[in-house]
Design a protein around this nucleic acid. Structure first.
Lengths: 220, 220
DNA sequence: TAGATTGTTAATCGATTAACAATC
DNA sequence: TAGATTGTTAATCGATTAACAATC
């Protein structure tokens, strides 16, 4: 399995985000202190693994007592970069992905969408009320990245345009790419890249349904 | 890592979907025959792993020669259940998720959306031209599942409603659930479940960006 | 036949789990 | 102090990779 440059498993990072959401829920439920076993119940993740994941970053709990919910949540947020805001330019799929923005937590709190650009002319000029942004032509990509000082580019165009849009984003100066298309894109070594392949994940469901005996649950 | 009920790793299934997309591309590019190393180049996956994944389901290639692209693609499609159409009811997030439908391959070819239901009153009655469907109140959930004989339910509501919507879908008779919320939902053992946690995957990007040295690429 | 690549087995590597010492 | 749970180490488990025999 892949690791981050600092030797911490990628899966640890994705789970940290899951713990964060669980802790937020706990806080809303008025829980001040929690045990690893409590987080395990909410997330379906083995308490031992939870403690292991946390231990990569330090000791956040108290032996014999547990974790202070708010304290742990804030630390995980710090680790995940949630306390820094990253200006984000979205390319393509104007309306869809982005109304997503109204639904809390589909994007991490650190993503602030500052421009939406689309290759499809029909969408140009469309106003997105939730974002307070108007969809612009793809020609504006570079100027938008520069003017708005965007650090993240979301690639959500048709697969055949994924690589060229990625290149444009990198040239314009983003340092991270989230690729929602189903093709692999290549970026320089100093650019962070996350591939999100929804179709591939949903195929698990299709696979399970076509088997005589539907399979057990899967957690991603 | 989790496995399907038949002992095949979940990750093998998600990769199969990735191979399928690569093969489709190859076919469009006019390639008749390919090697595991070719698929590897397109997907970034080790050829050895590709052959291993395929071997769970049989021998689809010819030693010394390679694979017939179309033949292999059709077989993978068969394995993944792409040749069966599953009627799908989407709950919540009306407009967003679903315009997604116009973007090929964000949903596997076996998902046919037959109804869209939303808990948000403001969206009721909105017509979705790409789907030819009108967003309905959540009260219609059960009747829609039954009337349209839906087998898949997509849960894309606010987290606090995720479990109750899931329950309603199961009671109404779906056999598979795709959960796009960031909370864990529970289903009976005979119901297939896939959790899609976009926020958790994107947090990898946030994590990488906040480190002094941005990390290497990640593939999901 | 010689060259090549699959399918499969064995070796490696890494991630998860269990167990427990440390300690609140 | 006794009871409890963390943080960490050791054991297990599973997934990936490398190597190669089979064979087109």
């Amino acid at each position: 399995m892949l690791k981050t440059k600092d030797g911490i498993p990628k899966l640890t990072i994705t789970r940290l985000a899951i713990y964060y959401n669980a802790l937020k829920k706990m806080l809303e439920d008025g829980e001040d202190v929690c045990l690893s076993i409590d987080v395990g119940k909410r997330t379906g993740i083995n308490p031992s693994l939870i403690r292991k994941d946390l231990s990569y970053f330090g000791g956040f709990g108290t032996k014999g007592v547990g974790y202070k919910v708010e304290f742990l949540m804030e630390w995980i947020g710090e680790i995940l970069g949630y306390n820094t805001v990253w200006n984000t330019v979205v390319v393509g799929m104007g309306i869809p992905l982005l109304s997503i923005n109204c639904y809390q937590n589909l994007l991490p709190p650190s993503f602030r969408i500052v421009a939406v650009v689309d290759t499809n002319e029909q969408n140009h000029g469309v106003f997105l009320p939730e974002l307070g942004l108007t969809i612009e032509p793809v020609q504006n990509l570079e100027s938008e990245v520069r003017n708005k000082q965007a650090r993240i580019g979301v690639v959500a165009v048709l697969p055949e345009k994924a690589q060229s849009v990625t290149n444009q984003l990198v040239i314009a100066g983003v340092t991270g790419i989230a690729n929602f298309t189903q093709v692999q894109v290549v970026v320089p070594d100093n650019i962070a890249l996350t591939q999100i392949n929804t179709g591939s994940l949903l195929s698990q469901l299709s696979y399970d349904l076509v088997r005589p005996m539907p399979a057990l649950r899967s957690i991603v």
